[in-house]
Design a protein around this nucleic acid. Structure first.
Lengths: 344, 344
DNA sequence: CTGTTAGCGCTTTCAT
DNA sequence: ATGAAAGCGCTAACAG
């Protein structure tokens, strides 16, 4: 075996050893046409023998393609994001693409450093933006790079998008609570106010509002509070909600993590779930079962995978569907029940 | 503003516009010495004006450095891994490095596709291996690439490592349970058997064994079971443990996720925590509070950050400490208590 | 302090 | 089916 440290075989080492030109080596190894079967075989054998691997930098420079995808996510340590990243990375690697990870904080204040598109310039062939509702100018700057871009978990009709029907999720969740007999239903949303009309928290809130309205209930602004998609935020939100609406009997949180935070907050207050207040979330978090969390469960691996396929198709000039919408399904557990005094 | 799509300014556009050579542009923009202040200023201004960003491929090819770090992790959707990746990515980006993410499954059977070092060849300047006890030959293949490599959360004395003192963690956890009055203490470990002697699960198990022995208790092999670091594994393990040792009163799990799984398993059995069985874990998982999980809490952001600093120091030819060990601390909550019949 | 000049290691026309 | 040769867009010696 060759000493990997001292000598890294180059394409012309292979060419020389195989008795062909570097062009033929390049073609043979990339499965391009116009190489005879036996030549290809010989080149492959020699390349393996020499431990030759093409330099990605040189290949990129010459071809203009990087075989890398930029994955932009506000966090990696939150349930949804971690699972999407995991799924997308596996899908992309299976297709021979590298994944460049870029995290960008969402500040709760709404003020966040603008994403700098320059870090991605000439580094990637495509971009995946996970759950980060970008400002219009940011999105445009990113698109200005000229790479295929797909949004996961958010996005309007203009962008290639993989997401849920968040309005319907809110609608179905709150309809379920109403069926149980609840009348005063609070909503813990994800972000403060400056969110886009097509962001998941905004859509879930719309669903909540519609379900309330269609049942003749009042989706009072005081019944909504932002938990910033964090456990601690959910915990604080439910207290604020209850302070304003002591008659609250149910809470619909826009994520399981916030829902679990809400349960912690209710406990802080000495209230029981579901006897005093019912709580439900959205996600299908693995640990929801710990507290019997009722939730709208979403297929997360599939979304990561679908988004990966989508960018790659776009890179390869295909025109795949611009919008893939996955379904969520109600998982009933024990954090929700009929309010006191209502027979179920 | 220039049209980013049709024209990407190159270094000689900048050179021409600034009236200097490309070499000077290169030096000026990279803050190298031997450029007069006013020249540097002018070059910077022109570069900004033109929206010039150096091509990473060209820079890598010419310099031999990629300004990228490969981050190898078995998963991204598990607590420890997600947090380490999050921390390391932020630290590396702050220093101007890109992060290439590579996931590799750990199969519970112990059989796992070998990591192929070729995917990293000439792509990165350094490697971070997160919590993946590599086989000796895999590690050597990776090291054979010739890049600085640091292990996070695992690693022997040969490798540059950022980790915990896992033996002491097991020791202190189990001593704590013994102080509470427990005598039959089970251990839910992470991996089956073929793990390295210096992997966290092995070390935590050693701590458990030592604590048992020093207290005159029997660390019976039947008191140990693997949960594969998964919630579901913890859930199954505790049942197996109880089947063999109905007299079990406490369980020490090697991770919070497995500990929470154990709690679910005990509930399945109709047992209460901590009245019937005490449970504790390791990590400091945000959701542990949901079930009052007692745990050995570890500083996870700091570990990601420290590892990033370490590789970068190694890349820059410094000789940093080869081994950074972080402390864990006992967080007592309500999943542990004195066993029945023992006054606390 | 600045410019000139070779490459870095591939891919890709264009010939043959 | 294969080869020759011209870059891709930078960095790094080396001069000056």
């Amino acid at each position: 075996m060759a000493d990997c440290l001292t000598m890294a075989a180059g394409i012309d080492d292979v060419a020389r050893a195989a008795g062909v030109s570097t062009a033929t080596v390049s073609r043979a190894l990339r499965d391009l046409p116009n190489v005879s079967a036996k030549t290809r075989e010989r080149v492959r054998a020699v390349a393996t023998e020499l431990g030759y691997v093409a330099s990605p930098s040189a290949a990129s420079l010459a071809s203009g393609r990087t075989r890398a995808i930029g994955l932009i996510s506000p966090w990696v340590n939150r349930w949804f994001f971690a699972n999407i990243i995991d799924g997308a990375e596996r899908a992309l690697r299976a297709r021979g693409y590298d994944v460049l990870l870029y995290t960008f904080d969402i500040q709760r204040s709404g003020e966040r450093p603008r994403i700098d598109p320059d870090v991605l310039r000439r580094r990637v062939d495509g971009i995946l933006v996970v759950g980060l509702p970008l400002a219009r100018d940011e999105l445009e700057a990113l698109q200005g790079l000229g790479y295929p871009l797909v949004c996961i978990g958010w996005g309007g009709s203009e962008e290639a998008t993989v997401r849920l029907d968040d309005r319907v999720i809110g609608l179905e969740a709150v309809r379920y609570l109403i069926r149980l007999g609840h009348r005063v239903i609070g909503h813990v949303t994800g972000t403060p106010d400056d969110v886009h009309p097509w962001s998941p928290p905004a859509d879930r809130a719309t669903g909540w509002r519609e379900a309330m309205t269609e049942a003749g209930l009042e989706p009072d602004a005081g019944l909504m509070e932002s938990g910033g998609f964090e456990v601690s935020g959910g915990r604080a939100s439910v207290k604020a909600l209850l302070a304003r609406h002591p008659d609250l009997t149910a809470v619909f949180a826009a994520s399981d993590e916030m829902a679990m935070g809400a349960i912690l907050g209710l406990r802080d207050l000495g209230l029981r779930v579901p006897e005093d207040v019912s709580v439900m979330g959205v996600d299908g978090h693995e640990l929801g079962e710990l507290v019997g969390l009722t939730t709208m469960s979403q297929p997360v691996d599939e979304q990561g995978w679908a988004a990966a396929e989508l960018v790659l198709d776009m890179i390869n000039g295909k025109t795949p569907p611009r919008r893939v919408v996955f379904p969520a399904r109600l998982v009933e557990r024990t954090s929700t029940a009929a309010p006191r005094g209502v027979a179920s």
